[in-house]
């Protein structure tokens, strides 16, 4: 873990968002500095994924500011944000199942890097992918698919990496390996935001954490500060 002192690379200030008439986020504040892992925790339906989608330009904010490197980027399109260095690995398996591993990596070249460079970084980090470069992504195991999603994200050299439920449906040993990689990625200067329903997994690598309940920030602090109060927050004791 690193000491968190740098100014945030990506920041949300007072974000509200809704699905049709239903408001789901009620003034979220979140800051993710470079070189650190920021965990976004909370029970089902807390608004974690929506927060990431707002950050990535996939869902509009109805109020508040989204700041990327100090610049307000409300309303920017997802593909423009991706080209600017913000990368989201969505919930589930963030791969194109009918494309081979190599073709999946080729799609990542839109962010400005050549295929050779993307492949080099990806295979160096996950050698198993190199062995399966011609295989269709849909036929890889769950863990390998998450590796591919992560590799594709990292190979584009993003400034901000947003990871949504990386552990979903995976064996604990695979999750451990993936989060080791996440910590290494952050150590390289990337601002990483991880969304996890299972707090303990994320808190192992996080520098700071924000807990959402009912679309509001219920608690915020370092893993040490939060550990004792998490159960209370999840069960509504803090509301």
């Amino acid at each position: 873990m690193t000491t968190v002192e740098a100014s945030p690379l990506v920041e949300l200030r007072g974000i509200t968002a809704s699905y049709g008439p239903i408001d789901v986020l009620h003034g979220i504040d979140l800051a993710a500095p470079p070189g650190a892992v920021t965990a976004l925790l909370g029970p089902n339906g807390a608004g974690k994924t929506t927060t990431l989608r707002v950050l990535a330009g996939l869902h509009p904010a109805t109020a508040g500011d989204i700041l990327l490197a100090g610049r307000r980027v409300n309303g920017a399109r997802a593909d423009d944000l991706a080209r600017a260095g913000l990368c989201l690995v969505p919930e589930g398996r963030g791969v194109f199942p009918n494309l081979s591993v190599r073709e999946n990596l080729r799609v990542a070249t839109h962010a400005g890097h050549g295929l050779a460079q993307v492949e080099e970084v990806a295979y160096a980090r996950f050698p198993k992918l190199g062995e399966r470069r011609a295989q269709l992504a849909g036929t890889l195991s769950g863990g390998e698919q998450q590796m591919l999603a992560l590799a594709r994200a990292v190979a584009t050299d993003p400034g901000v990496l947003l990871l949504d439920e990386l552990s979903m449906g995976l064996a604990p040993i695979v999750v451990g390996e993936l989060y080791e990689q996440v910590a290494r990625i952050a150590a390289g200067g990337v601002a990483v935001v991880v969304v996890e329903q299972f707090a303990r997994i994320a808190l192992r690598v996080a520098d700071r954490a924000t807990v959402l309940v009912g679309g509001r920030v219920a608690a915020e602090g370092t893993p040490g500060e939060l550990e004792g109060s998490l159960a209370d927050v999840y069960l509504g004791g803090n509301r």
Partner: peptide, 8 residues
């Protein structure tokens, strides 16, 4: 959506 997230 994922393609957009990759800058396509």
């Amino acid at each position: 959506g994922l393609a957009s997230l990759n800058g396509a």
